[in-house]
Design a protein around this nucleic acid. Structure first.
Lengths: 222, 222
DNA sequence: CGCGTTCTTGGCTAAATAGTCAGGGAAACT
DNA sequence: AGTTTCCCTGACTATTTAGCCAAGAACGCG
């Protein structure tokens, strides 16, 4: 069940435009509030339509949720593609690349991180859907990369799944918890400088910490 | 607004017992589902009382939420105490200690991590309350420790707040995202072995990664 | 036992929410 | 212009939810 047609089409039927607008709003609201906290009334209002319009374009609240999530499909597919292209690099290089991609996605599409956290801690059918259609394959692929890096002696020997989840959470933490950062520290997570500092930290500290202590030394970067 | 009396008292009035039972259930449900997803009916049912009983013991849903959260006060206070006692250790040692404590709390009181994530990504008045009464002082205290460690040349120079949040998220990730771990990897996060592996990883990889590369070498641990 | 206090409940209200439906307006095609 | 298809809405319903109240049950204490 992909989207009905390519978006942004010049002469897209009018309905598709409003459907797209609704989906944008829905993704935002669902990812911020979760499935039940987000109300159809609010989504409709924010999209500039009235409530029954939602039921014209989408059969259900659940259907709307799935369609909204499906928008993220392209984002993840693109990531997958990039990893595919570089598939002959060393596992460690792949992992570093995956991490950078994850940070980029976290900043450019913060909804994804929020959704994964929200549903990942709640469990249930929506998590099952996400695992099946959005994040499962990707999680397991990156985990396989980590396992390969361990087997190649490039990474310390910890459970690969632990490594991957921890890296993901660490990478997404600043953006996903943006309100907390603001409240507790007065820090605005969305800025480019914050992102740059975080990316540097993830590579130079976190990923470096996972690497097997080098025989001699790493390429001194700073 | 502390709890009405010391719990566990032998001849605690009957009402206090049920109130305590309600608070337990409420903490669980609120932390799993968030404020609005958790319903008073469900909480009452799970606590074995009928709905109006909640309004006898607590004025409001909001009041119930705050009281439920307040239970975590002791947990955090105890942590604070331990850090206080060791206040003369090096900043790095303190930070390592704080991390270990955080991991312990994550496993023993998983509700805390869930709440921080839920409200920390949603923002709003409840996050403000949490910051004021539960996690704000603690966040800023640990951040100060990190800053001291940087100043002492023990830690790489990244924004202390970034370090602290990232460490916390990494420490709590496995337990907080237990359903995701189960769904995507078939891993049960709650087990002691999982926890042990995670703690080892946090110290040997993550925290080690943050440390300033030693002049010669670290005390080879393994 | 008698009586007041503490605790709990069934039965209610008002508000909000997901979802339905018939009708109307706009666009497109003939 | 006429007509068909597409798109949207106002007005409704059923259900769920937080919260209220009066009555009664359980308990403690003289």
């Amino acid at each position: 069940m992909p989207l009905q047609a390519a978006p942004g089409q010049a002469n897209a039927r009018k309905g598709e435009q409003t459907a797209a607008r609704i989906l944008d709003v829905a993704l935002e609201q669902f990812s911020r509030l979760g499935f039940e906290r987000a109300t159809l009334n609010d989504i409709a209002a924010a999209a500039g339509v009235s409530a029954p319009t939602l039921h014209y374009h989408f059969v259900d609240k659940a259907d709307l949720w799935q369609r909204a999530m499906w928008q993220l499909r392209d984002v993840i597919a693109r990531e997958e593609q990039l990893l595919q292209v570089a598939a002959d690099a060393t596992p460690l290089a792949l992992l570093r690349m995956a991490m950078r991609l994850f940070i980029r996605i976290s900043w450019d599409h913060p909804a994804l991180g929020r959704i994964v956290m929200l549903e990942g801690m709640a469990g249930g059918e929506r998590l099952a859907w996400l695992d099946k259609h959005l994040i499962g394959a990707r999680n397991r692929r990156i985990t396989a990369i980590a396992a390969a890096a361990i087997a190649a002696g490039e990474l310390q020997d910890f459970p690969p799944a632990h490594i991957v989840i921890t890296l993901q959470m660490a990478a997404a933490s600043l953006v996903t918890l943006a309100p907390l950062m603001k409240t507790s520290f007065g820090i605005n997570s969305q800025t480019a400088t914050t992102r740059a500092a975080h990316e540097r930290m993830m590579v130079d500290a976190i990923l470096a910490g996972f690497m097997v202590r080098p025989p001699a030394k790493t390429k001194a970067k700073r």
